[in-house]
């Protein structure tokens, strides 16, 4: 298969549960060897989409093809798609080895081949010495590796991962994130991760689809998603930003509550503009660069920088502060930004 041809083609897929439209005309193309992320708040439909691809749900409308073959008539147990469950769903009465071998036994492979492949995958995830343990005897991180091993040992065309890191504590999460990325390169399987954690999606994925209320709001590479969000929802959901609603007139943004602001980008047709905190700086009140004057309301220390919340009239601006001396609460400051860093937003 040539690069660029979609491995998985989701076309116009909709699914409702009663009055709730979990998926609303979703179309996506996922390419071979891609690390793809479905990102969205809980209830946005991302898990439903995953279950539709795995075959546990049938869509009301639409079509899904894998390698050009219609996937929907194929029962879930015969799809070349494996799923790593959020809760891992390890079989509690089977050892690590039998858990991992389960999918191969289902394929009725010869015993020798099963042993070779299980050994190999246990080495890949670093669990060779735990092969005779029961899931109960493993740590959270180890259980996750077993779940992963059990899915990749089948050598699926597509591996679906449902919130793969959510059950792990923060420290292990970082390690597993690196591990997942390494594995994806090593085994050469297309990964689709479902997550509500933007950091996870942004750092792992080649491309991210941001979903909300059953709709794909934006599909882009992480950097583009961050730099050029198209909607208020995406600008707000990914990273943080100051969002100023208003209208574009006379070459300037007429922001509600703040007044006219010079903008570098073409904002015709925009419904709001966004400013990332790193684009906003605090200045002395008398500084000529200050665009507006405001009062510092809160300062959140973040380690390498601090995030200041500055109230300008009725609008709260977010600004990163990298100075050694942090502004004190209640002090009057100027807020400044370059007109070119203004991001126009065209949708809600």
């Amino acid at each position: 298969m040539t690069a660029g041809t979609p491995l998985l083609n989701i076309h116009g897929v909709s699914r409702s549960f009663g009055d709730i439209r979990a998926l609303d005309d979703v179309s996506l193309e996922i390419h071979e060897n891609e690390f793809f992320a479905l990102l969205g708040p809980s209830g946005c439909g991302k898990t439903t989409l995953l279950r539709v691809i795995a075959g546990f749900e049938q869509p009301d409308e639409g079509m899904i093809t894998l390698d050009g073959v219609d996937l929907l008539p194929i029962p879930p147990e015969r799809r070349a798609v494996n799923l790593m469950f959020q809760s891992y769903a390890l079989f509690p009465h089977m050892t690590v080895e039998r858990n991992v071998a389960y999918g191969l036994v289902c394929e009725r492979l010869p015993r020798d081949e099963i042993r070779v492949r299980v050994d190999e995958v246990l080495r890949t995830v670093g669990l060779t010495d735990k092969r005779s343990s029961l899931p109960r005897e493993l740590s959270g991180g180890q259980r996750q590796r077993v779940a992963l091993a059990r899915a990749i040992v089948k050598r699926p065309r597509l591996l679906l991962l449902d919130e793969p890191l959510s059950a792990l504590d923060r420290k292990i999460r970082g390690e597993m994130q690196v591990e997942l990325k390494r594995l994806q390169h090593e085994v050469g399987i297309t990964f689709v991760v479902v997550t509500h954690d933007q950091d996870e999606a942004m750092s792992l994925a080649d491309r991210v689809a941001v979903m909300d209320e059953g709709i794909v709001r934006q599909l882009d590479a992480p950097l583009d998603l961050y730099r050029r969000p198209r909607s208020i929802f995406v600008a707000d959901f990914i990273g943080s930003s100051t969002i100023l609603k208003g209208t574009y007139a006379d070459g300037a943004w007429q922001a509600v509550g703040v007044g006219a602001i010079a903008v570098g980008a073409d904002c015709a047709g925009a419904i709001a503009i966004a400013l990332r905190p790193e684009a906003v700086r605090l200045t002395a009140t008398e500084d000529a660069a200050a665009v507006r004057l405001g009062t510092v309301q809160e300062v959140y220390f973040q380690g390498d920088h601090a995030l200041a919340l500055v109230k300008v009239d009725e609008v709260a601006f977010l600004a990163n502060v990298r100075d050694d001396v942090l502004p004190s609460r209640g002090s009057d400051v100027g807020v400044a930004w370059d007109a070119t860093s203004v991001i126009p937003l065209f949708e809600e």
Binding site: F56, L83, A89, F91, C106, E107
Partner: peptide, 27 residues
Amino acid sequence: LDSMLLEAACNLGAGPWRRFRTILLPL
């Protein structure tokens, strides 16, 4: 019984009879 276990078995390629024999019955 966690119904996810049956879905996991299904996803790994187990048909109804195998799911019954290897997951449902022992658990």
